[in-house]
Write a protein that binds this DNA or RNA. Structure first.
Lengths: 196, 196
DNA sequence: GAATATATGGAGCGCCGTTCCGCTTGGCAA
DNA sequence: TTGCCAAGCGGAACGGCGCTCCATATATTC
């Protein structure tokens, strides 16, 4: 069609249109609310309806479900990651800080029905979320784990990535309410297993 | 319709028709083969096609997917459960037997792509499989765990159910190939955490 | 006010699980 | 051997899903 030689006299596409920004915000708010009630597996249609937009709009702003999930939870993930140094400074020992930080992470997962499971079920689709975790959480845990290893509290040869994934998997299984099963107990035992 | 006073001269309905039995066998074989290649989440249509039967037939014999899965794996589950006493008798110690039995269970799960995940994702749908596990595997593990506790090798206050579920969850997460992650290492640490 | 890139919405497609019912067939009685 | 009929069968059909596509509407610029 076009020869594509149009000069760029208009504002370079860096600024989005006002309605586009408004819809993106509406989508984020709606998704956050729907995720709480219906879980992160909520039908795309429902999220679009809650935001009062059409299917096309949601896919334009968030090509994959993971993009939406990442956008919604990025702030909370950051908060969790940033708590690492603080805990390390205030806790009685690095291992205590490790326990507290893991608690924080578990709390985060616990309020996100199906998040951990969804990530596991569709790792490719949620690769962006996976990347966010690697990028923010793994380094935070690495610091704490390293400190605990320096004091000799942790001797097991486990990587931060392995540990955080194990915790995620265990939480994924514990999301379902079951009085017989307590994911936190399993995690406590796992942490104990990391000691000598 | 009928008044129900028909005398029972015919064979009581306990015996199924020959073609029905043939189809059930064909479905079991087809499902076992499809599960290996496509995972336990394989579309129902595909299984029906592989068995050369229609949709109605598969639902007639196995009203839920879990019924089919249970039928396919029951034998392997039994084998795993029955290995418990043998291991306990031959292993160097109850804790060693525990490790070996858990290895067996992990092997079983490892060859069933998506089994553990499927059970977690749809616990209601797979309640029959869940029941099979509780019925066969929990007692087997309980014996080993009890023996290990008697010798003082295991001190943690964990129930057999909790332990087997934790292992299942960890395997569910480790099913995806990922050179960075080794589910067996996590499980080893967890077992270590069960010791003093 | 006109022009145009940008953004929108929802119909439509393909895949899924599951149901339902008209047709087929195995097995028994006569 | 034949006729009968309940047990068994197949697959069309339905509703719900994720995702795409493009005619239409709108914000923005000149």
């Amino acid at each position: 069609m076009s020869e594509g030689d149009k000069p760029l006299s208009t504002t370079p596409s860096s600024a989005k249109r006002a309605d586009a920004r408004r819809n993106e915000r509406a989508l984020l708010d709606a998704a956050a609310s729907v995720f709480v009630t219906d879980g992160v597996d909520a039908p795309v249609r429902r999220i679009a309806a809650a935001a009062g937009v059409g299917m096309g709009t949601i896919y334009r702003h968030f090509p994959t479900r993971a993009d939406l999930v990442v956008a919604v939870y990025r702030h909370q993930v950051d908060t969790c990651a940033e708590a690492g140094p603080t805990l390390l400074a205030t806790a009685a020992s690095p291992f205590a800080a490790l326990r507290q930080w893991v608690d924080l992470f578990v709390d985060f997962l616990a309020t996100k029905h199906g998040l951990a499971a969804a990530m596991r079920n569709d790792p490719d689709g949620f690769s962006a979320l996976h990347a966010l975790f690697i990028e923010r959480l793994v380094p935070a845990l690495a610091d704490i784990l390293g400190a605990a290893r320096e004091t000799g509290e942790v001797t097991a040869d486990i990587t931060p990535y392995q540990l955080i994934r194990a915790i995620g998997d265990i939480c994924a299984g514990g999301e379902r309410v079951d009085p017989e099963y307590d994911a936190r107990l399993t995690i406590r035992l796992l942490l104990d297993g990391c000691r000598s």
